[in-house]
Design a protein around this nucleic acid. Structure first.
Lengths: 201, 201, 201, 201
DNA sequence: TAATAATCGAGACGGTACGTCGCGTCTTGCA
DNA sequence: TGCAAGACGCGACGTACCGTCTCGATTATTA
């Protein structure tokens, strides 16, 4: 019978080395050539140390990504910018997102993580709970503020609103169906906010 | 020296068997366990026959998917429904899309193809040209009709509009960040069309 | 810096459990699948306790075998039987040896120990000194008595004589080049004693 | 279901490289450190090519040993020397055997093969049939000639006689219970032929 | 009788090798 | 010449053990 290892005896040095090596390697060789063996070697670690603590390559990538995200933007917990002008704020956020997706340091790791999520419902659930929901809540909070300021329809479904704003960008990035530019981000915000319907006369 | 094979001598029986086996297998074992070797065995075909005609697993999946799509909805070439009511028509289309994404026969093959596209820019370009653009053109055509009918802003960017409508659905399907229901599809259409801004007084 | 452990603080319970587990395990799973890790687990003991007290798997097996032998036949120290009839006595001894080699409780442990000896000269020396030589001395003592009784050539090399008697049995047992029966043991004794040359006329 | 590979498609170059590498490696690093992985690397061959054609490390060593033996002494098929003087002939043969066992090129490979035989009854049977029995038959043939020449007891059991001659040498070699010298070989022959009993008066 | 020092169980660690699977290439013999 | 079949060199998989290394928690003297 398989028993869970005791986390209190875990080597933090190895953990950090593994996560760093995973990020480095996925950036260098890409998702397809990323191997546990390669990560272990790059981290100066035995393979078993990886298999002991992570159930799958996906969950390792997830942890690595959390580290990456946590290191740089844990100020994100502070919430989205609120200048009082929703459109300006959203454009800033989406353009930042676009810049991040175009940043080579993030591009390959995020594609790798995305792929694992797509094929692993358990990981998807983990991702949804630990990354997507908190960030989504921040976004919805900003939209709620906009509602209070009368800049957004009272009855708008905020989850749908968030999807409307971020879905197009993520898809274009993933599928490369068009150039992922700040201009595109701006158009998405404008179109989503203005709506597609013709103006009321 | 490598010479290109002569397509006129190609065995159609083998081609069909390979594409069918690829679809069957990806549905049975999923993308991660899908192997060329397995497809060849299941198709009763030599491995070389696959390597001779397809440059990558992704392009094989793409072909297989074209077959799948072609068999069932080649009437799609006929264009989107146009009852005169844009919202109704779009809801129908998006709900059909949702049903398709939820159909087990399509789910795994599409995830597999998506993954290949995400990691293979050449395949992404092929996909964009041969599948995305034609379908996008049909959608834009319907939106243009709506513009002519005054149901859509004259200055709306139609590419952005299409992304706004389909991006959220595809993302929710891929990342499982929420249930992918017809209701959700309806809300996306409504929100996109109505816009997020408060009504003009 | 490495210091020698203090034998006075050694846990006798652990020692006994390890030796017993080693014998049990080698009997159950055979030499090839015998592992220090397995012995430690079966003995309810930490691995380090084994590595602390034994320099190699071979020396552990040697100790275990000494225990096994000591428990049952420490009367062997008393010397070989001496009824006055050398041939009868030798046949008894060799048949006993054959029975022991055929005993499942001894077979696998002895094969394991033999293998370690074959590949480890240091262990071989230890074995020669602590097991082979004392037993060999007992055998030679019996042969010397036979010499005094005029049943054995005065100038016979007793070491060679012992090898001549036991070598064939051990080899047949190890290599399974033929059935290891009491009859075979008897034939070996007869042939060795009688010699191969024809009777003087 | 596992099917046997087709021997007609086997690569002879790989086969030879593997057998040679096995012999070289076992001579260099010894039995304990001999690994399939190491052999494959040294032979410039994939591991699977070894696993495809040999069921165990032992059977590979056996094949390698057959090659070694076949290359050098396939003249052995011609039979043992027969000068008319049995004792001289046997001493020559046993001294040659001793020299061979002391030859570093043979020592480690033979120990390795011996170990595999000891722990693998199937391999032991193969060894008995393909190596031990033919060589034993040659020896018995020489002894039969001696019987016809009146140099050996008519009723001597030839199998036992062969064991009596070779068993002691093999044992001393394996267990290192004493120096393995030509003198020892001579004494074994003399003692075995003369017998241990005193001369008839 | 407490302090103290070593062994003890447990098991994580960096490694090596295992035996298997799949890759993409190459060769063979049939149609 | 295309094909089914499959051997090949290669690389990675996930597992088993190696021998070393911490960890508290017994123990069994020594102060």
């Amino acid at each position: 019978m398989k028993v869970a290892p005791d986390p209190s005896r875990r080597s933090h040095a190895s953990r950090r080395a593994i996560l760093a090596a995973a990020l480095d390697l996925v950036g260098e060789v890409g998702y397809t050539k990323l191997s546990i063996e390669g990560i272990a070697t790059a981290a100066g670690v035995g393979k078993q140390t990886i298999y002991r603590w992570w159930p799958s390559k996906g969950s390792l990538l997830f942890d690595a990504f959390l580290t990456l995200a946590g290191d740089e933007q844990d100020g994100a917990t502070a919430g989205l910018p609120d200048t009082g002008d929703l459109e300006t704020d959203l454009k800033l956020v989406l353009r930042t997102t676009v810049a991040e997706l175009n940043d080579p340091r993030y591009d390959l790791p995020m594609r790798a993580l995305h792929t694992e999520i797509v094929h692993d419902p358990a990981l998807a659930a983990d991702y949804a709970k630990r990354l997507d929901e908190p960030m989504r809540e921040l976004k919805k909070e900003r939209l709620r503020a906009a509602q209070r300021a009368g800049q957004l329809a009272e009855d708008a479904n905020l989850d749908v609103a968030v999807d409307l704003l971020f879905g197009p960008i993520l898809n274009r990035w993933l599928q490369r169906t068009g150039p992922l530019t700040p201009e595109y981000a701006g158009q998405v915000v404008e179109t989503a906010l203005r709506g597609l319907r013709p103006r009321e006369p």
